[in-house]
Design a protein around this nucleic acid. Structure first.
Lengths: 154, 154
DNA sequence: GCTTGACCTCAAGTCGACTTGAATTCGTAG
DNA sequence: CTACGAATTCAAGTCGACTTGAGGTCAAGC
């Protein structure tokens, strides 16, 4: 057989079997057949899982990642979306750099307490109330792009 | 009175009243008194909330933030912890920069599909299976540093 | 033929940081 | 005095991405 058992896929991809079943449930991957009860996966699923992993590290949600695969199963990522995400990352980095510098400054500051450090106080004014730690600009997701739970894989 | 109602604190700080009650429940802030049932806050709570906001944007969990306040209520942030977090941010930025560049490259790539783009394929090898999107190095948090739910504020 | 262990399904639990809702209690303005 | 609105408590719900557990099935090796 050219098919893989779920355990095989899990081992080779590093994605736990429970996650694989979950991915299938939400239609993110699929198994090609069953042997008895057991899912049989096309080895291609490994590439797909790499893509999914990449999407995740890039900060896409599973729902967004699912939308990036066309009906043919080929990844179909709009270049504009990639650029937009790159710009998100850029903005995130700028914020992180500011924060990093401020933290370092405060760590080295000689003021007796942090509260007396002027740059710490400045930081309080500026850095607060700004969500910095990864809040990707999700265009209004109208729910149900993915059916929450479905009976079987896609 | 020099005290503030919860609504006042909410308005001035931008933190919803429900969140303020939650913060109090977990011992992150406290109210000084009650007028009838109503919490009365010392105006100092506003500074404290700024600090909390800052901690959040820096990626600390509420639990970690709570640990940064000494028993006296003064913030007491170990400089080493600040440096460590700055280094976390640094690492996070490096990863983000790589990812950003890769995304831009792929967006501009002339290969017919992303899968045929060599740098995309390279990205699959390297970027995958590496948690990038903010997973701060939490030293083993042994649970129950903060009692999950407690009867009253600290 | 029997055991073993990998796999199955389905429901429920987890985590963090809150929000929401229902039922109730007050303080204050009219 | 009464109504109003702001607060209160407590339990439960939310979100995303899974994990866990109980109880059941099945293919392969001995």
């Amino acid at each position: 057989m050219l098919f893989l058992d779920i355990g095989e896929v899990a081992e080779r991809s590093g994605v736990p079997a429970s996650a694989l079943r979950y991915y299938e449930e939400i239609g993110l991957i699929r198994s090609e057949a069953r042997r008895g009860l057991r899912r049989q996966y096309d080895p291609d699923v490994l590439l797909r899982l790499s893509l999914i992993g990449l999407g995740k590290t890039a900060g896409f949600s599973l729902e967004e990642i699912a939308a990036m695969f066309g009906a043919d199963g080929q990844p179909n990522i709009p270049r504009e979306q990639l650029r937009a995400r790159a710009d998100d990352l850029q903005r995130q980095m700028v914020g992180l750099r500011t924060l990093r510098d401020a933290l370092r400054h405060v760590a080295d500051c000689r003021a007796p307490t942090h509260l007396e450090c002027p740059s710490f106080r400045a930081l309080l004014k500026t850095a607060s109330r700004r969500p910095l730690v990864y809040r990707p600009s999700r265009p209004e997701t109208e729910k149900k792009l993915l059916p929450k739970r479905r009976k079987s894989g896609l």
